[in-house]
Design a protein around this nucleic acid. Structure first.
Lengths: 343, 343
DNA sequence: TAATGAATTGGAAGCGTTTTAATTTTATGA
DNA sequence: TCATAAAATTAAAACGCTTCCAATTCATTA
């Protein structure tokens, strides 16, 4: 049906193998024949068949993407489109395509990955999340299949190439920042404890308090899903305490927005009554009322670096394990203020 | 390297063709051999090679996605992740994978599509936008390659399967709604006029005013990008008019948020001083202050239906052209009120 | 028991490339 | 002018699967 290498060969009066070499721009073919063949390709409107090439080459120029199972997290949290853009541009540069593994449940996702890998559909995989115990990651590691993680692997951290922020330090910094504003009762609202990012941020928070000699209260630490609803639930709980915190570290902008909305409904003012600092600095952070003080984690770069290092690894199997830390910085807006003396 | 159909055949003591038939669950193979072969597959950990299968079959079980060029629109507007989820679940059901065509510029995108199509990488394509004049769409149509459009094709609307809302009617309805609230000076803030969705919504708006016998003012109609910045710019212009509108139809929630923020800064109250109704009803609409009255266009379904109908078309080439209209409904929140007499 | 036909299975070609090894062509120098 | 080396090209196998067609097996029936 479609025009193949053979048609081109016939028209140009050469062997198929010669055409193949012209496509690859092999130096062993004379300029004269190259010219001739190129004209034939042009004339027939030839386009190489990727599938056939993949089969012969054992390589597809496709990168598989594994998204977290939570559908709502994916479609509501702007983190994903942004990281996707970084990935996409990194891949595009080296002529790789991106393929998404679909699947709702844990098991479906795992099966999808196995199919991608064993079915030879992709040359490498990027995990867009990092869980404490992850079947998919174990599988890829055991098979020694090229992959990189966006986030920090919980186990074998030294043996897996990954791209992440220094979430531990970042959280320590923002907690220090709140301490600097005289706050002493600082709460933490994080995501699912099975996500490594939550763990890291929690540790940073704890470290900061410990260094400051403040003892932690368990009731100040809440875990919910990375969504607005999560934020709402969390803040309700916190405000019911006898001594509610005067400042909060919230692990995600969307959650923080939920917190903000709920506080607004409760008539509690930000930053006068309570200070908030959150993470990710997505567009929302700028648009909320009041605009959120948030840690910019460079989401785009997270994706972009991940794509680049995966491609390096694919193209050079002996590429060493890498750990890429993308810098973060605090964007100060309007949700933090000095603690006021009890009024 | 990997275990192939031949290895299985050898172990099970049958011909490769038999193994292939067992995989396809061909009824012409006896249960006994099927059992035998399946055991061998199990034992060897066999997984079929998709690439080889694709080559033999001339089909890939992959759907290509074409995203709009504007990187920021993609990564900031929640429309895309949501439609992506719909697509993903629709595709997953029928065991199709999704592949994104990457590319920044118009030209890069076009080239990406050509490669996907002529390279045999995908069985069909979904366009996630509809422009007034689109090279990609023309190309696909001329080649008679299976594709569906999310949105309404500008030309050849009857000849292209597409999934859309009735944007014309929806906009007429919301404009009527504002008229019902006694507003007479109603502005329209839309996206790029090259996008068909903008055109449709503008037409609906105009129709409503015409029916009501209100003459349109050109200065009430503004076009900007579908982003928050766009909303900011637009409202600034409008409020500088001698007789600024008392109500607005805004074609996108994100824009509306920009409008809201800017009005807030200008000290203009919503809905007391000006009413706003917008489109899409993404999470933002609920979270803005005040919460936006917005038309829910069922983004998830848009994607889901698109995936389903493309797959139908792929699997049955004589499937007739279809036009799927996804229902919409107005979600009334807090940004609309009756016009007050001039104060 | 042999012939018939249906049910199974096997062999081989083909999908469109790449690539190795072999062959042909061209250039070189005595 | 001819042998020889270098350069250019070709033939054929391989990638792992599907599928058409032929061959075999098996159960029926005359």
């Amino acid at each position: 049906m479609a025009v193949t290498i053979k048609d081109v060969a016939k028209l140009a009066n050469v062997a198929p193998s010669t055409v193949s070499r012209v496509i690859a721009n092999n130096p062993r073919i004379s300029e004269k024949t190259k010219q001739k063949v190129r004209e034939a390709m042009e004339q027939l409107g030839y386009h190489p068949n990727f599938i056939a090439r993949s089969l012969a080459n054992q390589s597809t120029q496709v990168i598989g993407l594994v998204l977290p199972g939570s559908a709502s997290a994916f479609s509501q949290n702007p983190f994903f489109p942004t990281v996707l853009r970084g990935l996409s541009e990194g891949a595009q540069e080296k002529q790789y395509a991106l393929q998404m593994s679909t699947g709702q449940s844990e098991e479906e996702i795992y099966e999808g990955v196995v199919q991608m890998v064993q079915g030879g559909r992709v040359d490498g995989i990027i995990l867009l999340y990092s869980k404490v115990e992850d079947k998919v990651m174990n599988y890829l590691k055991n098979r020694d299949f090229p992959f990189v993680v966006v986030g920090k692997p919980y186990k074998y951290c030294e043996e897996i190439t990954h791209v992440d922020n220094d979430n531990y330090r970042a959280t320590k910094e923002v907690t220090d920042y709140l301490l600097g504003l005289k706050h002493e009762c600082i709460g933490f609202i994080g995501g699912d404890l099975n996500l490594v990012v939550t763990v890291e941020r929690l540790l940073g928070y704890e470290k900061s308090l410990r260094d400051a000699g403040i003892d932690m209260k368990d009731e100040y630490i809440i875990h919910e899903e990375f969504l607005r609803e999560g934020g709402r639930e969390a803040i309700k709980e916190l405000m019911q305490l006898d001594a509610p915190p005067t400042a909060l570290v919230v692990a995600d902008d969307l959650m923080a927005l939920g917190v903000l909305n709920t506080l607004d409904e409760m008539g509690i003012r930000v930053p006068e009554d309570i200070s908030i600092v959150s993470f990710n600095n997505v567009l929302l952070a700028e648009m909320s009322r009041p605009p959120l003080t948030s840690v910019d984690i460079n989401i785009y770069n997270l994706g972009n670096e991940a794509a680049k290092s995966l491609i390096q690894k694919i193209e050079n199997p002996k590429e060493p394990i890498k750990r890429i830390i993308v810098p973060h910085h605090l964007v100060t807006r309007c949700t933090c203020g000095e603690r006021k003396e009890k009024q």
